[in-house]
Amino acid sequence: MPNKANWQQIYSTEYVKAPECWKTCGGYCCKNFYGEHFNILDKNGVSLPLLEKEYEYYQSIGGISNITEPPKKRTFNLSNGKSFSIYLLSCNCGGVCEPHGHRPLICRIYPYFPVVDATGTIYDFEYAALMDLFYRDPDAEHKCTLVREQSERIKRELTISLRPLLQDPEVVFVFRCLKELVDRLKLKMNGYINTLDEKQLKKFISKYEWMILSGKPWKDKAFAQRIDDIYDEVKAAFGGKDFL
């Protein structure tokens, strides 16, 4: 059987070493800084995705006490009959999650997620929060201090610390799917949020909300086929064994 992620080990790993970095940015990673412009999406909460096995472990350790809203489960079906589920936590903790050591993987690797090939080898990084995708020059203008000032160090450290996690083909598959998802969203949005005046920003946010809620960027045969292809590529790279 392919290697499976050890979530106990993952939740004890410090992926990004930046103690109290929130003091330099107002806790940007844990707040919805564009929420005031939303008309439909949650104005305050941030959405935290967890894989099914991660969510099972998260529950087994008691979760985060001040996240009380039940998660939303999203199940995705492939044409080969395989499926996988994502659990979405709505977090309004503003960075003061209790206990802090129970925060999900997506929080631990922020501000990035790895862009990987079918073997799980990292060859690039993408922004972990969807709204972070829409800065013209993130290295200079991003609200996260780590992106502006320490991006190269963070990426080097993540490249090493994520290796054990990326021995799990399901994790590799999901990260590859996530890259396809954000590429489609960027293509549909076609703009930079930090270059817009108030009127343009309102229009941009409205379009963004519609894209997220309707799922329009991902509702076509080409996208579905690409997800099927990714599964086959990862399966082949990990010895031809099914992993979902």
Rank of each mutant, 00 (worst) to 15 (best):
P2W: 05
P2S: 12
W7Q: 11
Q9L: 07
Y11K: 10
T13H: 05
E14G: 03
Y15C: 09
Y15E: 02
V16N: 08
V16H: 05
C21K: 06
W22M: 10
K23R: 15
K23H: 13
C25V: 01
G26N: 11
Y28S: 09
Y28E: 10
Y28V: 12
F33E: 06
G35K: 05
E36V: 09
H37K: 12
H37W: 13
I40H: 08
I40S: 12
I40Y: 06
D42I: 09
K43H: 13
N44S: 09
N44T: 14
V46K: 08
L48E: 07
E52A: 15
E54L: 11
E56T: 11
Y57W: 09
Q59H: 05
Q59L: 15
Q59I: 05
G62V: 06
G62A: 04
I64V: 13
S65I: 11
S65P: 05
T68A: 04
E69W: 00
E69Q: 12
E69P: 00
P70A: 08
K72T: 11
K73F: 00
K73N: 05
R74D: 00
T75L: 02
N77A: 08
G81D: 04
K82H: 14
F84R: 09
F84G: 13
S85F: 01
I86D: 03
Y87K: 04
L88A: 03
L88C: 01
C91R: 01
N92C: 03
P99G: 08
H100T: 08
H102G: 09
P104S: 09
I109A: 08
P111Q: 06
V115K: 15
V115L: 11
V116R: 06
D117W: 09
D117S: 05
T119H: 12
G120V: 07
I122G: 11
Y123G: 02
F125T: 03
F125N: 05
A128W: 04
A128E: 13
A128F: 01
R136H: 00
R136N: 02
D137Y: 03
D139V: 06
E141K: 15
H142W: 00
K143D: 04
C144G: 06
L146A: 07
E149L: 15
Q150A: 13
S151H: 14
E152A: 15
E152K: 14
E152D: 13
E157K: 07
E157T: 12
E157C: 02
P164W: 06
L165W: 03
L165H: 04
L166D: 06
L166A: 03
Q167Y: 01
P169E: 06
E170P: 03
V171I: 14
V172R: 01
F173E: 02
V174S: 04
F175W: 13
R176Y: 00
V182C: 08
D183R: 11
L187N: 11
L187S: 10
K188R: 15
K188F: 12
K188L: 12
G191D: 04
G191F: 02
N194P: 07
N194I: 11
N194G: 04
T195K: 13
L196K: 14
D197I: 07
Q200F: 02
L201Y: 01
K202Q: 12
S206W: 00
M211C: 12
S214H: 02
W218C: 09
K221L: 14
A222S: 14
F223Q: 02
A224I: 00
A224Y: 08
A224F: 13
I227F: 09
V234D: 04
K235P: 03
F238K: 12
G239H: 14
G239M: 04
G240C: 15
K241M: 07
K241S: 10
L244Q: 09
